[in-house]
Amino acid sequence: MTALVELRGVERVYPAVRPVTALRPTNLAVRSGDWLAITGRSGSGKSTLLQILGLLDRPTSGAYLLDGADVAGLSDRERTRLRASRIGFVFQAFHLMPHRSALDNVTVALMYNRCPRRLRAARAAEALDRVGLGGRVGAMPNTLSGGERQRVAVARALSIRPDLLLADEPTGNLDSATAEEVLTLFARLHAEGQTVLMVTHDPQIAARAARRVQVVDGTVREVRPDA
């Protein structure tokens, strides 16, 4: 079985007077259905790795195979289209639009996904239902708790039925009880077959994932469960 995602010798150097190598040549394969936790110290290159995987950033060198096709050299427009159709992001800061209802925040993703208008509301409601917010579709973000907001963000990412769900510190702004809500949700999604890649600096949270990789100074290492 071929990997859903495969990095071959991917490197990312931020150009500057003294260039910063955020990611050293990396090989990484993620199969469909994996739940992967990416850990590492601050500044180690976790976000850089996730942004490359999410087609927000382009590797300086190396190949990125998505479903076996190299997407590293695609144009900005082509990568944008792939993001709209195949990738769902969840951010530490939620990034909900404050003046729009939970439902509207989700339908925006479906709009960029080119989902037909008449289907959007139903699919957004379905996604909110999946994250346990079926009763709060009309709620405005400022009336929701932190955990609920992050679940709206997860629903937004899920609504387009992405091949890859990418979460950068999804629990970073949440207390441990609320973080647990989100982790339980991820565990369920993983059980339903959703591929999840999650960045966290918290080892306990990382322990919940099926598979762990650690980034140390831009070098990515697999962590054995027994280690």
């Binding site: 927000l56 944008t80 289209r81 709209a84 992001f89 800061a93 990034h95 639009m97 925006v108 996904n113």
Partner: peptide
């Protein structure tokens, strides 16, 4: 932030 979000969601 909103602009970045829209781009990440696939807005050109």
């Amino acid at each position: 932030g909103e602009i970045g979000l829209r781009r990440s969601l696939g807005g050109t």
